[in-house]
C-alpha cells in the first residue's frame, strides 16, 4: 500500500493578555458569567498551540513542508499578532469577539490556513490555555463521522 500523505504537527508558544467581556451585557451579567476573567485589567496565559497539517511528501526533500517555511507562516499568522499582546485591545478580531480559548483557536486556524501553500491542508489546531484546558478545532463543517481525528 502506498502512503502518499503524512500528517505533521508543530508546536509554538505565545503569551497573551485578555479579558472576557461582552459589551451588550450589563456589568452584573458579565461578572456573573465570566467571574474573575471579567476583571477590567485582564490577565494572561502562556498558550501552547499545536498545528497539524497534512500533505504529500516531496520526493526530493522527504518533507511535507520545510519547517523553516512553516515557522515563518506561524510567525506571521499567530506569533506576530498575538504574542505579548492584550488581545481585546490590540487584535481587531477580538474587539468584538470574546478571546476565549475556543475563539483564539478559531482565529489561529483561519489565519494559518490563509498562508499555507495550496497543496497542504490544515488538519487541526490544538490550543492549550494551560495544562488543564485545551480545545481542538478542525475547521468549519468537519465531517467527524467519516474523517480521522
Amino acid at each position: 500500500m502506498l502512503i502518499d500523505k503524512v500528517y505533521l504537527s508543530r508546536k509554538i508558544y505565545f503569551a497573551s493578555g485578555h479579558r472576557y467581556h461582552i459589551d451588550d451585557w450589563t456589568d452584573e451579567k458579565n461578572k456573573e458569567v465570566f467571574g474573575p476573567c471579567n476583571n477590567p485589567h485582564g490577565h494572561g496565559h502562556n498558550y501552547e498551540l499545536e498545528v497539524t497539517i497534512v500533505g504529500p511528501v516531496d520526493q526530493k526533500t522527504g518533507m511535507v513542508i520545510n519547517l523553516t517555511d512553516l515557522d515563518k507562516i506561524l510567525k506571521d499568522s499567530v506569533m506576530s499578532p498575538l504574542d505579548h499582546r492584550f488581545l481585546n485591545y490590540e487584535v481587531d478580531y477580538f474587539k468584538k469577539t470574546v478571546p476565549t480559548t475556543e475563539n483564539i483557536a478559531i482565529f489561529c486556524f483561519n489565519e494559518i490556513k490563509k498562508l499555507l501553500p495550496i497543496e497542504i491542508d490544515l488538519h487541526k489546531v490544538k490550543l492549550y490555555e494551560n495544562s488543564d484546558l485545551f480545545v481542538e478545532y478542525y475547521g468549519e463543517n468537519y465531517d467527524f463521522k467519516n474523517k480521522k481525528i
Partner: peptide, 19 residues
C-alpha cells in the same frame, strides 16, 4: 528509495513495515 530520514519519511516507513 532516496532514503531521506525526515520525520515524514520515518513515519511512512515505520507504517509500511508494520503493515
Amino acid at each position: 528509495d532516496n532514503s531521506i530520514t525526515t520525520g515524514e519519511q520515518i513515519v511512512k516507513i515505520f507504517a509500511l513495515l508494520l503493515q
